[in-house]
Computed example of a mutant assay.
Amino acid sequence: MSIQIIIVYIGYILLALNTVLFLRNYRLELTPIKIFTLYLIGSLVLQLYSSYLSNHRINNLFLSHYFFIGKFILLSLFFREILKKIILKKIISVVIIIVLVALCVYYIVDTTSYDKFNIFEIVVTSIPLIIFCFLFFIQKIEGSGSRFIFIVSGMFLYFLCSLLLFTAGNIKGSTKMLIWITNALLYILYQILIFVEWYKHFRKKPALT
């Protein structure tokens, strides 16, 4: 088994662990954590199904659309809950609508895109989330407690790297492999930070408002 495969499976194991941990007290937690837990569940299901299809040499590219769009919707709703300013909540709602309409139009115009890896989809669903992370950091600088800082920090690092990876389709050889390994390692870091968030803020009792 190659080092790349080992790294990928470590990420899967950590994702499964985090999903179980957040599910344990799902009913007791605040809305942001409930939304984030749904994101973890969806990610785990899609990762496992994608791995199954890949092991059976079945095309799994179509699953990327469900992953990126589902991630965008759920995490946008997550940020709409944790960002305090009303204007930012309204902006996020508008962004969700604009992105979904843009994707619908794109797929209506180019119906063959469903069976391909869609760079446009990756960019329009990833950039808003990166911006939301940045807005959250600004909110933290202004002072609003420490909840969610580990989760959002992991998102910011991982989504930036993923955007680079998935838009670098023309890169070949060792450089592309290095980007893939870096992305997989950052995914592990992302999952570790999610675990730290759970351990520090949600393992004993529901978070306070």
Rank of each mutant, 00 (worst) to 15 (best):
V196Y: 01
I194L: 02
V20C: 06
L15S: 03
E29P: 07
N18Q: 05
F195H: 05
L165S: 14
L53K: 07
M155G: 01
E142A: 14
M177N: 14
L160D: 11
G143F: 03
A16S: 09
V196F: 00
V196N: 02
R147P: 03
Y9L: 14
I10D: 01
K90A: 14
L165Q: 06
K176L: 14
I119M: 10
F137P: 02
I127Y: 02
I171A: 08
I41F: 01
L83T: 12
I69H: 06
I127K: 04
K90Y: 07
F78D: 05
S2E: 08
A102W: 02
L23M: 13
L44K: 04
L63P: 04
Y66E: 09
Y49N: 15
L100M: 03
F136L: 03
P32A: 08
L208S: 09
S50V: 13
T125H: 02
Y187M: 10
G70Q: 10
G154M: 01
V95H: 08
N55D: 09
T112W: 00
F62K: 02
L189I: 06
V101L: 08
H65C: 03
Y66T: 02
I73H: 02
N183K: 05
I108L: 12
I86A: 15
I98F: 09
M177I: 13
G70T: 04
G154E: 00
A16N: 03
I181M: 09
L23T: 10
I5V: 15
I10P: 08
K140N: 10
L17H: 10
P206T: 01
S113M: 01
D115T: 13
Q47N: 12
E142Y: 06
L129E: 02
S153M: 05
I87Y: 12
I98L: 08
Q4V: 15
K205W: 09
L165K: 10
K172D: 14
I6L: 15
L178N: 15
I141H: 09
N170L: 01
G145P: 07
H65P: 07
V99H: 07
G42Q: 11
F36V: 01
S76G: 08
L46N: 06
L157Q: 11
F137D: 01
V20R: 06
I194P: 01
T209N: 15
S2T: 11
F148N: 02
F136M: 03
G143S: 10
F166G: 05
F134Y: 09
G143M: 08
F166W: 06
Q4A: 15
S93Y: 05
S93W: 03
N170R: 10
I149Y: 01
P206N: 04
L21E: 06
I131R: 00
R27H: 14
S144A: 08
V20H: 04
L30A: 10
A184P: 07
K84F: 11
Q139W: 05
A207S: 13
V8F: 14
Y49I: 09
I188H: 10
L38Q: 15
L163Y: 04
F117T: 08
G42L: 03
L28P: 13
I138W: 08
Q191H: 06
L14D: 03
F78N: 06
S50Q: 09
E197K: 00
I41H: 09
Y106A: 13
I149C: 10
L38E: 15
K116P: 00
F202K: 04
I41A: 12
S126N: 13
L75I: 07
G173Y: 06
